[in-house]
Simulated assay, not measured.
Amino acid sequence: MTVDATASTSERARAELEAIDTELQSAFDRILGAAERVAVAAEVLGTEHAASIQAALTDIFEASSVRDIAGQRLTAVREAVDHLADGGTGTQSRPERKRDKSSKVEEKYGHGSASESGLLNGPQLPGAARTQTEVDALFDKLD
């Protein structure tokens, strides 16, 4: 997305978000490509070295989930920018309304109407997410 000198602040913000997303995806692809090449090379090494390399690669692949989380956060920011660009008008009173709150999810489960899309809340801001103790308590209820 290119932006000229007459672009509005929201158009500029959206273009910056798109640039961040594109650069992040490019870096992510390069990291995974390099990790996959290392995995192939590790297969020809002795077992002692290959196990250590595979463990490090597993860490890289697990850490790569940050790309999905960052993408979800960028989508939330894009929605907020669009909302602000519209002057805060529209059917949504706040951009976050598209994201179900956990109490709503629990209510849907209680009535048997939970859908997968209703559970896609995206990443939570630090301090806003459920604690591990709260998550464990939910699983304890299933026993």
Rank of each mutant, 00 (worst) to 15 (best):
K141P: 01
E16M: 05
R14E: 10
K104C: 04
T133N: 14
Q72F: 00
S117H: 07
S26F: 09
Y109G: 04
T9E: 08
V77D: 11
Y109S: 13
A76T: 11
R94C: 00
E96V: 03
T9W: 00
G71R: 13
K108L: 14
R37A: 14
T58S: 11
D21S: 12
S8E: 01
R30D: 02
R130N: 07
Q72G: 15
K141Y: 10
T58E: 06
Q132R: 09
R97F: 02
A114W: 06
L84T: 04
Q72C: 02
E36H: 13
L74Q: 11
L125H: 09
I20T: 00
A41Q: 15
D59C: 01
A129F: 12
D29K: 01
Q72L: 10
A5P: 03
L125A: 13
N121P: 08
V81T: 12
A70K: 09
E16N: 11
G87A: 02
A56K: 15
E18D: 12
A50R: 15
V135C: 13
K101R: 07
E23A: 10
S102F: 15
A80R: 04
K108N: 13
D29H: 05
R99F: 08
S102C: 01
A34G: 02
S10C: 06
E106R: 07
G88Y: 03
T6F: 05
F61Q: 10
L32I: 10
L74R: 06
A114N: 06
I20H: 05
K104S: 09
D4T: 11
T131I: 08
H111L: 03
T58R: 09
S52P: 06
E43Y: 13
D82G: 06
I53N: 09
E116V: 08
A7G: 14
Q132N: 04
A70E: 14
K98P: 00
G88S: 04
T75P: 00
V44R: 10
Q92N: 06
T133W: 08
R130W: 03
G71L: 13
E79S: 07
D4E: 13
G127K: 05
E18P: 01
A34N: 05
Y109I: 11
A63M: 07
S64T: 07
E48C: 01
Q132A: 08
F61S: 00
D29Y: 01
V77T: 11
L84S: 01
D4H: 13
A85D: 00
V38T: 04
L120H: 09
D86I: 01
A63K: 12
L57Y: 01
S52Q: 05
G33L: 07
D143N: 10
L125C: 09
D82H: 08
R94V: 02
Q124N: 15
T91F: 04
R30E: 09
H83T: 01
Q124T: 14
L119D: 12
A85F: 00
E106P: 00
E116N: 11
Q25E: 07
S93C: 05
R73F: 12
E106N: 06
I20K: 02
Q54F: 10
Q72E: 03
A41K: 14
V38W: 02
S52A: 15
G88E: 03
S117I: 12
T91Y: 00
E107S: 07
E96N: 09
T75V: 00
A76F: 12
E18T: 04
